[in-house]
């Protein structure tokens, strides 16, 4: 694709592809850290923080876990630029899908939906 995109992605593309022989250990480390993060997110949920803080913590851990899965199990970190560009735009549209409808209703948070 000859669409200009950030240089970091180019650099990521040039990274050496992990040869699978040496990287089974890496996959296992990722898997174990995902399990630890799962325990962590359950553990933190028992603390009574304010709603905003607990949403932020849970989302942060979930995002970290999600990016571990996407980067290493799905090899996004060494993926081709074309796919990264498409996913980049998909994520923008995902944010549009989540935040545009919410921007309409967020004025009414806490007001029941009966008309």
């Amino acid at each position: 694709m000859d669409i200009p995109f950030s240089n970091t992605l180019l650099i990521m593309n040039n990274l050496e592809k992990p040869s699978s022989t040496n990287h089974n250990n890496r996959y296992i480390i990722i898997g174990v850290s995902l399990l630890i993060l799962t325990i962590l997110t359950v553990w933190t949920s028992y603390f009574t923080a304010t709603v905003g803080v607990s949403i932020a913590i849970a989302l942060a851990i979930a995002t970290l876990k999600g990016s571990l899965v996407a980067s290493f199990f799905m090899h996004l970190i060494t993926e081709k630029k074309l796919i990264l560009v498409i996913l980049f735009f998909t994520v923008i549209f995902l944010f549009a899908l989540i935040f545009l409808p919410f921007s309409d209703t967020m004025n009414n948070v806490g007001i029941p939906n009966d008309y």
Binding site: L97, L100, P101, T105, P112, N113, D114, Y115
Partner: peptide, 29 residues
């Protein structure tokens, strides 16, 4: 379906709590 929706003079048996505008958002997206 919001709570207490009435059809033909009868209150329909729905738990309510839904948002009719959500359909419009999903549809027009």
């Amino acid at each position: 379906i919001p709570a207490g929706i009435i059809q033909g003079g009868k209150v329909l048996e729905y738990s309510g709590g839904g948002n009719p505008l959500l359909w419009q958002h999903l549809f027009w997206f």
